[in-house]
Amino acid sequence: MSYVQINNVEKSYQGRQVLKKIHLSVAKGEFVTLLGPSGCGKTTLLRIIAGLERSDAGSVRVNGKEILAGQHKKGQNIGMVFQSYALFPNMTAYENIAFGLKLKKISPENIRQQVGEIMDVLSISGKENNYPHQMSGGQQQRVALARALVTKPDLLLLDEPLSAVDAKVRESARSLIRDIQRRMGITTIFVTHDQLEAMVMSDRIVVMNSGEIMQHGTPEQIYHKPENRFVANFIGTYNFVPGDWVGLSAYEGEVCIRPEHIQMLKKDQLEQFGDSGSVRLQGLLAHYYILGNTVRAEVVVGDRKILVDRLNGFQGSEFETNEEVGLVIDKDACTMLAPGRGEGN
């Protein structure tokens, strides 16, 4: 029995369909990320789950209760962190966090205790009397998270809460959110356009494009087994090559291979490497540059440019640009894509 059940949800704005028959179920305690480019419908879907937006058709159930737009007072317990945090500027951090508890008519001692606990967990103790404008972006983010978590919601919704802080804070916030989510066992739906964020944090990723779910699965599945060209293009980097290059002449479509799954060798070493399960290609190393912990090579093979990633070792590179190189591709590393869906993106 799934904890969050989304059935056939549809939504149009001014004749433009932004959500097309969305089906999705989320298990209790699961961390699911809605990932997609802007305008793919992920935020609209989140807002429908939150009951902030009315769907044209279909239903959303959380813990057996149907979510209806604008019915937040009737026992629905969903926490949400907004992209802008939406902290109440006239209230201190403490008052912001206590706001939801006060509405639930909880006794002042209990409120004090629960707010204190959550502030401890998020390490913002001592900031009780600060107003939002007196706190840094990262602190505001924690207060927003504390405010959403303190009521112990059935479901936590996160609408790109990491997009407004700088890279360092974002990195620590990722693991903080993931940590707390695991510890409290809160079912969470997270919206982002950042694939790295999605892969680091999620149990399951739902890739969306133009109002449809393109694929859902674990980060592993999404990365290694893309089901269509959109997902292959959107997540990480892929080389697309004709099927006959890798001895799959019977296969009509293109196959794709991750840059890090291709081995690059000196041309004269090519003969010694690879077995029957792999394919050998020759090409010209056109460009070679550092990405950070990896180094990317652009190799021209025939009329195609093949990207190859290698670890950026301490000894530096033994290759030079405009050098003839050999490539070894393991046939098992090749993914075949069903033609059609998601084409042209």
């Binding site: 907004f82 802008s84 939406a86 109440f88 006239n90 939801g100 509405l103 405010r147 959403a148």
Partner: peptide, 28 residues
């Protein structure tokens, strides 16, 4: 202020619409 986001944040915390206006929007 970001009126819409503040209103939605208050609603999500279980605040009524009129209450939101009086407690969250008006003081700001």
């Amino acid at each position: 202020i970001n009126v819409k986001a503040l209103t939605e944040a208050a609603l999500m915390l279980g605040c009524g619409k009129l209450e939101t206006f009086i407690k969250v929007i008006l003081p700001n």
